[in-house]
Design a protein around this nucleic acid. Structure first.
Lengths: 223, 223
DNA sequence: AGCGGAGGCTGACGCGGCGTCAGAAGCACG
DNA sequence: CGTGCTTCTGACGCCGCGTCAGCCTCCGCT
């Protein structure tokens, strides 16, 4: 089963809450509201974000916000959609060369790419995670779409090594791929917590790369 | 550096918001409010929990809530404190026997214990995670106390195997321990998402145990 | 240029939760 | 049964929510 579905709200079938199709100016206002939402998400607790704050930040009135989104959650949902679409770049990283010496740097590339990707979307991602855990299916689906690509790709690579007899047949490729992504996601989310306790970014990247490389290829990384 | 600090608000230096020390009845009311908060946290989005809901659920008035907590966040903070104290049970699991055949079941015991622990505290844990990621230091500290014990213990075990030459000297024990805990935490949080995609709990536990065992002992698990 | 009309914005309003009092109710003890 | 402390709550002003009707803007057409 493929986890990544190539679906994304095109910029031209955007609707206002009353069903009308906005023109140029409307699209721009909507965009400004989204950007301000993202910005506030970065500096305020999600729980405390008020429509009136977003409106003020965007230099408009609360009523205008409601013209484009039924509530704050819906606006975040759109941001999350963009995050999911943006995640395609991660899949590419997995398609690198896993054989021989190249393997180690492919693993490292994934780790670095993932951390960078997460950092770029940190504020939105944490809301997606929360909503997913709270059982919200729309966010859950989006999260799956964001991380599904890289999971699928890892899964396929693992299966390949397994076919060649490098990895035990008993290993569950899907479970392993999922767990690798879980590891990456959680480390990305809490990396600054790590640093606070004396674990440097470089040590994190090294260790993550090692674990990833081993689980995909079945070999220990060479130094 | 030890991550786990044995500090916990004793039930008898509890204060009302005005500074007075509550009596029997007061303590009971406070407790009821905490329990209702936890309960609501399980069935409502954190963002939507209102003081008035908690009060209604507890069969009292909002004003009473404010007598014991300045806001909802503070109540959750107390719940989080209990979660952190409760985490001591996890540390014990790591102190098992890692040698020979016993090692595999020690690893499995940690995984199962961790998942069970997380499930019990799921609702509070996700708020702790969110607040931590949002940079709230009080929650971050609590989270560190909750997960610090098991991290420390794993770290020490890894170091031991390293001293015996079973693990490469280059491996960073702290980083590895942190990453193992990260893996566990994230899998615990999103395990039902996994199941939705066809990854059974048993496959998760198997794979987590394998990865954990390998990273701690340096050996592949025997089937 | 002038005008009509669709598209875009907002002021104003009723609603409901917030957080704070002062004072009412409950309880224990002499 | 009264006294004094603890506990609870009704009432209030405040503010953000979400929804209108109506106003402004700007485009396109003649």
């Amino acid at each position: 089963m493929a986890l990544s579905e190539p679906a994304h709200e095109a910029e031209d079938d955007v609707r206002a809450t009353d069903g009308r199709v906005p023109g140029r100016r409307g699209i721009a206002t909507r965009r400004r509201l989204l950007d301000c939402t993202a910005q506030l998400l970065g500096k305020t607790s999600y729980r405390d974000i008020k429509v009136i704050d977003i409106a003020r930040e965007a230099g408009t009135s609360p009523a205008t916000f409601y013209q484009y989104f039924p509530d704050v959650e819906q606006a975040v949902l759109v941001l999350a959609e963009e995050l999911a679409t943006d995640a395609a770049e991660l899949t590419v990283l997995v398609r690198g060369d896993w054989r021989g010496d190249k393997g180690a740097s492919t693993a490292r590339g994934i780790v670095e790419g993932f951390l960078e990707y997460y950092d770029r979307h940190r504020a939105v991602f944490r809301v997606v995670d929360l909503a997913t855990e709270e059982g919200d299916l729309r966010f859950k689906q989006l999260r799956t779409r964001a991380l599904g690509g890289i999971t699928d790709a890892l899964c396929e690579t693992i299966r390949e090594f397994q076919r060649e007899g490098r990895l035990d047949a008993e290993i569950d490729p899907t479970a392993t791929a999922f767990i690798m992504v879980a590891m990456l996601a959680h480390c990305a989310a809490h990396r600054y917590g790590f640093e606070f306790w004396g674990v440097r970014t470089s040590a994190q990247v090294d260790t993550l790369s090692r674990v990833l490389y081993w689980n995909v290829t079945g070999r220990k990384i060479k130094k």
